[in-house]
Design a protein around this nucleic acid. Structure first.
Lengths: 188, 188
DNA sequence: GTCTATAGCATGATAGAC
DNA sequence: GTCTATCATGCTATAGAC
């Protein structure tokens, strides 16, 4: 063959990484296959050597997304000194709100996931339950774990729909302070 | 003219109402103008007698949405016995999660609003600040008001991305219990 | 105001050359 | 594996008949 043995896999990796970023910034449905391919220096026709359809890319993209971001939020179980609070602060940062392409999938593609296939949603559910389980253990409170996840996702959605940078920061700061305060009651 | 004096206004109203519901369920960008028009029994060409562009419909749709849902959440100031808690419970209901077309715009169109024009986002910000102000007064806590809004929006986004009905209800119930518990500390 | 017809462009996906 | 060319369809928006 005219290409190295690992070439296809490398292209697929690049495509996945680039597509994730673009979709989180511009939306997945509203972005054409050609845009995804052009972003890694290829033309649209080559897409179908890697995925059978645009929908397959979405599924693979979400899977990669969950592997990276949800596992990151769950925390390393071998690092007990690692606190949920620290992760919350970085999630609720101005940087995260201003850079959707690098951030969590849920505040950007949540509604598109909600409209997607049962398989994709089941995969998302599995990751969310693992995260909830990890936080629940650390917090000693099942409800709080789900509530913190919701709080994080919601704060980013709300922060991004407002126009002024000032209000955006106010929303994030309020959410951070609220969680710090309530966590003292909830956390052991 | 061949149509009654109020005909155009009535058609515009129907178009707005139908479009709001469809967009919240299927997404706005991914829905064609023709679909919006067909839903009220007209053809696509007639759309431009009512709006100059698809973007104008989006702006008008969001405005209507805010007038209805955000003002509803803010509560009637002449009804002091009306508690924030009651509104939270109905927002965090299974019914709301299962019927995006009738529910709040933010969990469904939040990301699309985030990508829209500064004018639209400024309009959304104005309504959110009014809601935050109203809840803040009742709760006697500025941070809690923003946090509750985020909690509500996030809980719906998260509830809708999971596949099983059971997990969906667990998320909503956790969020409701968490808020009930923390509200006792926050509310006077 | 609404219709049909159409321009003009973008899309998802396929076929065949290299 | 990637390219160009293309099909078939979808889209936003406009033009002109009624």
């Amino acid at each position: 063959m005219r290409y190295s043995a690992t070439h296809k896999q490398e292209t697929r990796e690049k495509l996945l990484d680039s597509s994730r970023a673009i979709a989180k910034k511009e939306g997945f449905d509203s972005t054409g296959v050609d845009t995804f391919m052009t972003s890694i220096g290829l033309t649209g026709g080559a897409f179908y050597s890697h995925f059978g359809s645009k929908g397959e890319l979405f599924a693979a993209m979400i899977e990669r997304e969950l592997d990276l971001s949800t596992e990151m939020l769950a925390g390393d179980e071998n690092a007990p000194q690692d606190h949920v609070a620290k992760r919350l602060r970085s999630y609720l940062s101005t940087y995260h709100a201003s850079h959707p392409e690098e951030g969590c999938v849920l505040p950007t593609l949540g509604p598109e996931i909600a409209r997607s296939s049962p398989q994709v949603k089941a995969r998302v559910e599995r990751s969310l339950k693992r995260l909830q389980g990890a936080w629940s253990e650390r917090l000693g409170n099942d409800d709080a774990a789900w509530a913190l996840i919701a709080q994080c996702v919601g704060a980013l959605v709300v922060a991004r729909v407002v126009e002024s940078e000032r209000t955006r920061q106010e929303i994030l700061a309020s959410s951070r302070r609220f969680l710090e305060k309530t966590q003292q009651d909830v956390q052991k």
